[in-house]
Design a protein around this nucleic acid. Structure first.
Lengths: 247, 247
DNA sequence: GAGTGGTCTAGACCACCGT
DNA sequence: CGGTGGTCTAGACCACTCC
């Protein structure tokens, strides 16, 4: 176990103090030089830690005035942060589950083949599942990956778990994904899987997941029941924007 | 005009070199000490600049190996970056326009009142518009704000423009917004505005925009025609995530 | 003007990747 | 092993806010 960097240790200490209520919402933190001295670290390291907490939305810095404890709750249903379907379900406060899991080798549909940059019709491993929230069927999903990455028998070994952990174990950790979102209505197959009428409102997410090197590892298509889920996105204001955190 | 910080100047110089093709996709940048020396800046400042470009998705750092030029195109339809409806329309390659703009004072619907933290029914300034993409009606929208911020006559002065610029001019620059996304079908009113059949598929975005202090300034409800728009979201991988950029 | 966060520097050492 | 990016420090000065 490698020891986390100092900034993360500091951030964790501060986070505890924030969440424990020692520092109430709206309260102003001690000044950076003061805090740094009292924690026995350099001001730079403290600032790096504060940057982490600010990125998490726990703190807000105001030039010339101070650093304040934010009083806004975290988004529990933030699309850009919650990756796994089970996390999305858990975020609604319900119990995630899986049923009707089936794996197979199937020819790749055009969009999936395009994402992997292989010829259409190439045989890929597929995992089809219905996800449940407190036993109600709420998400119909399919996951594709290359056979040499996960073959169907490996896929079936993790019906109930997340694919991500299994990929990470192979050194293929998912670094990011791009999700395309569109409103749809249930076709007969999805309607049957979810046990809802044909034409029911769905939110469909087509997602392409890649490693840090940009290699496409996993493609998924998820149909969410519209009346169960709430999706939020945090949008940064006009002007320049950043996607990931720096130092 | 205040001079931008050194990191931004460096970032701009590097960005030019990246976009001009002087450094091809996949190319490795000179090492940090080398680059810093050749630019005549400290390594820290250079790293801060690189962090900005990495956040923009132009560069990718790989510990122990080097810093590389990314070869992935920017998302043009990124929900977390494109704020204004007209930007979303422009991102599809079409010509944005506005018709049927009307302003009024109206009692706040419950969700809007909740966002502003005022009693339901409070009179608010409202701007209702239909947005067009190359003359086709594609978005039906409503924007609410407090009367003391923008009254109806001020609102009507900017039918064709963005509200954001006007708010910024009052010192109420929008810092961030939280959008809730849901699939819907057109009711009779929206169907009439967009000249589509009742029941047409829509993607509805309910957004609350705030200043850096967290004051709610603008609330909007936008109905996008599902078959015209493609929305993408960049999702960071499992593990820790950050929302905004630090140093 | 006093105090706050924001930027920049110079130098050191560490963790990781490749050969 | 050498070279890369990652972390940390100490100190200086700047820009902004508030009294």
């Amino acid at each position: 176990m490698t020891t986390p960097s100092l900034r993360h240790q500091i951030a964790d200490r501060l986070r505890e103090r924030l969440l424990s209520g020692e520092l109430n919402a709206g309260a102003r933190l001690p000044s950076e030089p003061t805090l740094a001295r009292s924690l026995g670290v350099s001001r730079s390291s403290l600032r790096a830690a504060i940057a982490l907490l600010e990125a998490d939305g726990l703190l807000r810095r105001q030039h010339g005035s101070g650093t304040y404890v934010t009083d806004y709750p975290q988004l529990r249903d933030d699309l850009s942060r919650n990756f796994a379907v089970s996390e999305m379900i858990a975020a609604t406060g319900l119990q995630p589950g899986t049923i009707d899991a089936r794996t197979s080798m199937e020819p790749a549909p055009p969009e999936v083949a395009a994402a992997f940059d292989v010829p259409p019709g190439t045989l890929l491993s597929v995992l089809r599942r219905v996800r449940t929230a407190s036993r109600r069927r709420v998400v119909d999903s399919a996951d594709w990956c290359l056979e040499e990455v996960l073959d169907p028998s490996e896929l079936s070994a993790l019906h109930d778990g997340s694919i991500y952990a299994s990929l990470a174990a192979q050194g293929l950790a998912i670094h990011h994904g791009v999700a395309k979102i569109s409103p749809t209505v249930a076709d007969s197959e999805t309607a049957r899987h979810l046990e809802v009428p044909v034409g029911s409102l769905l939110l469909t997410v087509f997602q392409v997941d890649s490693t840090v090197l940009g290699e496409v590892v996993l493609v998924s298509l998820e149909h969410y029941l519209a009346d169960v889920f709430q999706f939020s996105v945090y949008r940064r204001g006009p002007g320049q924007g950043a996607r990931s955190s720096g130092e």
